[in-house]
Computed example of a mutant assay.
Amino acid sequence: MAVTVDDLKNSLRIEITDDDEMLKTYIDTAEEYVTNAVNANVNLTQYKQFDFAVSLLAQFWYLNRDTDMAKTPYQVVSMIEQLRGLNP
């Protein structure tokens, strides 16, 4: 299962469609970010932690568009570490 724009909108309680393209970009970028942080040569989509990390990261980017995002949220880092442990 992959994270969709509708999933993200439900999590963020967004009812309008104005930001759908931005949300899709955040999802796509978060998928690449998490994949590259774990192992770009492994298919991670089978793990629930992957979708959770992608969703959390995309939500974080959306909610913090106007602030310094120097650090990845702890929850995302934790999911990445778990995925690394599943894929040595």
Results as ranks from 00 to 15, higher is better:
residue 2 A to W: 08
residue 3 V to Q: 02
residue 4 T to W: 03
residue 4 T to H: 05
residue 5 V to E: 08
residue 7 D to Y: 09
residue 7 D to K: 12
residue 8 L to G: 07
residue 11 S to L: 15
residue 11 S to N: 15
residue 12 L to D: 03
residue 12 L to V: 04
residue 12 L to Q: 04
residue 14 I to N: 08
residue 14 I to L: 15
residue 16 I to G: 10
residue 18 D to G: 07
residue 21 E to A: 14
residue 22 M to I: 14
residue 22 M to E: 11
residue 22 M to K: 14
residue 23 L to S: 06
residue 23 L to I: 14
residue 23 L to Y: 07
residue 24 K to F: 06
residue 24 K to T: 09
residue 28 D to K: 11
residue 28 D to P: 00
residue 29 T to A: 11
residue 30 A to N: 00
residue 30 A to E: 00
residue 34 V to K: 02
residue 36 N to K: 11
residue 36 N to D: 10
residue 36 N to P: 02
residue 37 A to R: 14
residue 39 N to C: 06
residue 43 N to V: 13
residue 44 L to P: 05
residue 44 L to D: 01
residue 44 L to F: 05
residue 45 T to I: 09
residue 50 F to G: 08
residue 54 V to F: 00
residue 55 S to T: 08
residue 55 S to V: 01
residue 55 S to H: 07
residue 56 L to H: 13
residue 56 L to F: 11
residue 58 A to R: 00
residue 60 F to C: 03
residue 60 F to N: 10
residue 61 W to F: 10
residue 62 Y to R: 10
residue 62 Y to P: 05
residue 63 L to W: 02
residue 64 N to P: 03
residue 65 R to N: 07
residue 65 R to Y: 06
residue 65 R to I: 06
residue 66 D to W: 09
residue 66 D to S: 12
residue 69 M to D: 05
residue 71 K to G: 01
residue 71 K to C: 04
residue 72 T to N: 07
residue 73 P to H: 05
residue 74 Y to A: 11
residue 75 Q to Y: 07
residue 77 V to W: 08
residue 77 V to F: 06
residue 78 S to F: 05
residue 78 S to Q: 13
residue 79 M to H: 10
residue 80 I to Q: 01
residue 81 E to I: 03
residue 83 L to H: 05
residue 85 G to V: 05
residue 85 G to N: 12
residue 85 G to Q: 13
residue 85 G to D: 09
residue 85 G to H: 09
residue 86 L to V: 06
residue 87 N to S: 07
residue 88 P to H: 11
